[in-house]
Each structure stands twice: as structure tokens, then as C-alpha cells.
Design a protein around this nucleic acid. Structure first.
Lengths: 357, 357
DNA sequence: ATGAAAGCGCTAACAC
DNA sequence: GTGTTAGCGCTTTCAT
């Protein structure tokens, strides 16, 4: 005998059977009404079912549905940390699109921990979530390959391994943004420019540098490896804002160089803000004594003084577009292979770069 | 005939049946091995099963398990935005604890949208996720009550409705922190203090003010309603950092007042940082001409110049502890009613408050 | 237009 | 120590 008295007690979960009984129909009909199928059901019956749902206090069990239909309308999102606004923006873009298309965006942080990242991916597989959008910090592509082998569709925003041809690539165009930033410094008369970066393991870093180089070469300028100041960081501060600290620390390094720089280009805004902060601490005026340009355009950039001149990465839009491609891949079983997505970065002029003679 | 050739193709999903066949055992035995039950299985058989798993390329289907056992070892987390570091910290704390206890933390942003918040809660219910930790922006407690009625356990970090007695309350002690902040300003010799706040609808705001009042009264000082400057905000900027903008705008308001203030207390750091920024724009030196104190201790606080003096809210620890209580509630079916959790805030002295004569 | 019934992949009695 | 089997709640043929 099916449960009664549930709407009130709420203890036992009502099932589709209870609804059927209360409505005096079969479970099949209930399912047809509730799952929004376009199967014909008399409006009479339909009404009775709607009422029965309320009467018995029914909440659909998605697990049953997923198991039966072998579909999980969710998209997994894995980023290194929620503390980095850049990733948060991407999530926002993804979520907006996913939600409006009927998918549930599930966001996870790997905490910059490869083991955790792998676990998360395995979890997705076990929950039969077959779409994943990831900014990976794993050195090995093995887990992602495994995910794909098991039938998952993947979109990659960032990776440390060499990209292969089985997923949607949605990286920001670091080459172009490096070029734009360097170009701007040159146009403002700077010739002695230091580049401050985290280690080059990440491809993105190498690309940014390449972009800088292109800008310089276009002006027939040379480019000394000495001008690249690389942070060696072992410690990853827990609070996720370690890149700000790195920037702050790199100022000492910068000032120790024999060469006198008029401008510095940082590979991301968090580092750039740290640099601005560190320079102030050393009593050096930005931009009057030294100009600073960043890359990313995170909210923080406009919140410090002087407001940071930087290159805007359209991460929100990138997330949106990438998500759309993911959904297409999921629904039409389209190939993700070889697809890559990129959006033009844009210079944002604020107050941290000054024109020199 | 069960699928063969799956490890290679990965097309059809292997099931427990396939494993059983490959291992020459029954599904029951397979389940006993894989689900980590302590049911006795000969190490011989066990080994064969482990091998079979690899051979057929088996990935457990959690949906089947959840449906069968009627358990979903996940904890839903709903916050207004990922852009606010305060919430992100809470998530971090929750995640750490949840993960180490075998629960999957599922974080969602309601985007400060009550409708979305309600949908998310309904989603949790439908996925049979019976634990939810939420910073609610809904004016009505109806959805949360519904969730509880359906058997869900709830922990609330923030709410706009009047708290009722059926969930774990884990709010930061705004009264105490208001008191601490005001106390500090008084101890630094300030007597003309403006309080800048967003509208008082939120209880937290009222509590902060109450704390300020307590500090003042303890010194037999009076407290004029004029000193409270309330932002009226309709527009919620998309980027989630609208509170910074509010702070910035409120500076005009502040300077228009006839009374000359030596210090301002902002109800959170984002606003405080906006105020510092706005003051600079007006050419007013912080802290020399006017001191500013915030509440929260978000990372940004130490990244602006002058670094913001504020009151640290132990949000990470709060998340941890609250999550532990949630797990207890879930596992031991303990009552959540009437439990409330609070952690002592702590003054963080940096550079934005100066001692005056 | 409606219903009966067969599973989706898993676990847990219950039997041996 | 191992196997058989009955469902968990749902969708979906296939009948009617």
C-alpha cells in the first residue's frame, strides 16, 4: 500500500506510483505528463495528475530518471581556485549559457592539486556527467584522455601538457594579448621593459612571451633574455592570491638589476597589482617613475591606485561560447576534435602607464 | 550477451554484470568487493574481480547506487556570488571538511537572484541531496522550509528573513565585530565617526550597527542617526563588485555632510575599499585626513594602499565547523533545530586608521 | 488516450 | 564464502 499522508509528514518520499494512485491513472501517464513529453494525454487526466502531485507532495527523483534514460544534463566545471576572478568569470559565462539551455553547471575547485583534479574527473564519470570544462593543472593528460575514452566530451581552458586533438580548445589568446600589451608600452615611448612572469612550464606563459617578442621585432628592437624576470615559486600560499605576493617580491629582484627599466609588463593582473604594491612600498611612484601593465583585466585592476592599465580577456564571453559548443557536442554528438575557440583581447587604458619622452 | 571489447572501444558502458561475467562470479560478490563492504570475500575471488574491472573497463555508476541505497553523499552549497571572497572562503572551509569526510561539495551561485536560488534548492531536492548550506538572498523562507519539510538538513550563513528554529545557524558574529571595530576607532581617539552601510533590510547590518552602538554606549557616548550613511542601491552591477562602487559613491555623500568626520566605519571590506579609493580620488589622504576601518578581512584588504585595517571573520573555519555539524546531522540524523555556531572575530590592524590627538 | 510491464545499474536480503 | 533475486523510481516500448 503506497504511503499516504505524505504532503503533511514529508517523511516518506512520494513516488510516481503514489501520484498515479492518487490520480487514478497509471504510472506511464503520470510520467508522460510530468516529463513534459509531447505524448497525447487528455487535459482531463492531466489536470487530475497535477492535483495529485500536490496532494501527495511529490518531488521527482532525478536519479531514477537519469538511470533510466542514461542522461545527466549537467556540465562539470573544474578550475584551480575560486579565488582567481579570471576563472570565476569563465564559470559565470558557462553557467549563464548552461542554465538557459537546461543544463546544470557543476563547479569544482581542484585547489591546484592534481590528485584532487583527477578525483573530480573520476567523480564526473561515475555520475555519468559526460561534459566537462576544465582549466587543468595536471602535468599529465592521462585522466582527461581516460574521460574521453569513456565517452566524455571535454573543453580545455588551460593545460600544462601538450594539447592533443580530442577536445574543444578554448584558451585565451595569450600571444595576441602579449603583443597588444608590449605594443602599447612601445607606443608610449618605453624601450627598457622588464617582463615579469611565473615559471614557463605553462604554455600560456611561453605564448605571452612570444607575443611580446613579436611586438618588439615588428619595431626592429632586440629582446634580451635578461629582461625576463622569472619567479621561482615553490610555496603556493593557501589563500590563492599567492601571485600577488609573487609580484610584490619580484620588485626587489627588479630593482636589483643593473639595467634601469622604465616599464614592466606582468603576465597577469594579480602579479601586476603585486608589483604596483611592492613599488609603492619601496617609495617608487607608479607610473611616474616606472610604468606597469598587466594582462587579464580582473576587477582588482580597477580597484587599486593607480588603476592598472591592462589587456582585457573576454573570459565571460569565452565561457559562454565554449559552453555552447559543449552543449552542441553533447546533444548532436558532434566531434569536438580540432575545434578551437578564441576571442580577441582588448587594451584597457587606465592609469599605470605613462608616456615618456 | 554482455558487451565485450569495451576497455578498448569505451563506447558501451560496462556494468557490474560484465565484471561478474569476466570474473566468473556473481554480481553480488562484485558489489561486495567494489563497494568496500566488509562482507567476507576470498582474496582469490577479490583479485579476479579487480582484474576483471580493468579488463572490461568498468566505471561504477553512482546513479544506480544512489537510487538503490537512497543516499546521495553530496552537500549543496548556495552562495550569492563567487565574486565575494568572503563566501569563497566559506566554500573552501566546507569543501575541505566535506571531502575529507567522503562527501562531495557542490557549490552553486544564486547570482543574487531569488528565483534562481529557489530553483537550485529544488534541484537539490530532486537529486536527493539532503544537506544544504546556504547564504540566502531570498526574502521569504518558504523554499527553505519546503526543503526541510521534505527531509533536508539546512545550515544558514546569511538570510533576509527572520530566522526560525529548524536549521543550523552559522552566522558570523556581526554584533561583536561591529563592537570591535568601533571600539578600536574610539581607542584611537576618534569621536566623529561615520558609519557607512548598505540598506538595513539584512539583519546582519542591523546587528553590526547594534555592535557599534554598544561600543559607544560603553564609553557613555551618544550616537546620532545622522552619522549613519545608508546607500540606496537599486542597480546591482553585474560584476558582483558593486559594493566597491557603492563605497566609492558614498564618499560624495560623506563629504557633503556638514559634520566633519575623522573616521569612517564601513560594514564590509568591499565598501571600505571603495571608500578609500573614492577618498583618494577626492585628494583626501587616508589615514592622515580620515581613517577608514572595514569588516571581513578579505584578501583585497591587504592589497590596497594603505592596507585596510579591518576585523577578521574566520569564514574558513566557520565553513569547516558548520560542515562538520551538517555531516553529523546527516549521518546521525541529529536535530539541527536551535543549533547555532559562532566564531570570535578578530581585529586586524593595518594602515588605514591613525591615532588622533 | 491509456495501461502493463520490462528494465536502467546497483545493493542487500536471503538462501545455500 | 558465494549466488539468486527483488526492487530503488523512473521511462518507454508494446498492447489495447
Amino acid at each position: 500500500m503506497p504511503n499516504q499522508d505524505q504532503a503533511e509528514s514529508g517523511r516518506t518520499k512520494a513516488t510516481i506510483v503514489d501520484v498515479a494512485v492518487a490520480a487514478g491513472t497509471s504510472t506511464a501517464t503520470v510520467s508522460r505528463v510530468l516529463s513534459g513529453s509531447n505524448y497525447p494525454v487528455s487535459s482531463e487526466t492531466r489536470k487530475r495528475i497535477i492535483e495529485a502531485v500536490k496532494k501527495v507532495g511529490y518531488t521527482p527523483n532525478l536519479l531514477g530518471k537519469m538511470l533510466k534514460t542514461n542522461t545527466n544534463a549537467s556540465i562539470g566545471i573544474i578550475i584551480p581556485t575560486f579565488q582567481n576572478p579570471f576563472f570565476v568569470q569563465i564559470i559565470q559565462g558557462i553557467s549563464e549559457r548552461a542554465t538557459s539551455r537546461g543544463y546544470a553547471p557543476l563547479a569544482f575547485s581542484s585547489q591546484r592539486n592534481p590528485i584532487l583534479e583527477r578525483n573530480l574527473i573520476e567523480q564526473l564519470l561515475q555520475k555519468r556527467i559526460m561534459g566537462m570544462m576544465v582549466a587543468s593543472i595536471d602535468d599529465s593528460p592521462k585522466t582527461i584522455q581516460h574521460y574521453i575514452l569513456r565517452g566524455g566530451k571535454v573543453c580545455v581552458f588551460e593545460s600544462n601538457f601538450e594539447d592533443f586533438n580530442s577536445y574543444i580548445l578554448a584558451k585565451t589568446d595569450m600571444l595576441e594579448s602579449g603583443r597588444i600589451a608590449m605594443n602599447y608600452l612601445l607606443s608610449m615611448g618605453h624601450r627598457n621593459i622588464a617582463i615579469i612572469t611565473t615559471p614557463l612550464r605553462k604554455q600560456t606563459r611561453a605564448q605571452t612571451l612570444m607575443g611580446c617578442r613579436m611586438a618588439l621585432q615588428a619595431q626592429n628592437l632586440d629582446f634580451s633574455d635578461e629582461d625576463i624576470i622569472i619567479a621561482r615559486y615553490e610555496k603556493e600560499l593557501e589563500d590563492g592570491l599567492f601571485e600577488f605576493e609573487i609580484g610584490k617580491e619580484m620588485v626587489r629582484e627588479l630593482l636589483n638589476r643593473k639595467k634601469k627599466y622604465t616599464a614592466v609588463l606582468a603576465v597577469n593582473d594579480l602579479i601586476a597589482c603585486g608589483i604596483v604594491n611592492g613599488l609603492k612600498l619601496h617609495g617608487i611612484a607608479v607610473p611616474n617613475e616606472i610604468s606597469v601593465i598587466g594582462l587579464d583585466d580582473i576587477p582588482l585592476a580597477s580597484m587599486i591606485t593607480p588603476a592598472l592599465t591592462t589587456v582585457h580577456m573576454p573570459s565571460y564571453v569565452l565561457g559562454q561560447k565554449a559552453c555552447q559548443m559543449m552543449i552542441d557536442a553533447l546533444e548532436k554528438d558532434e566531434q569536438t576534435a580540432g575545434i578551437s575557440l578564441s576571442i580577441q583581447p582588448k587594451l584597457v587604458i587606465r592609469d599605470s602607464v605613462i608616456k615618456i619622452s
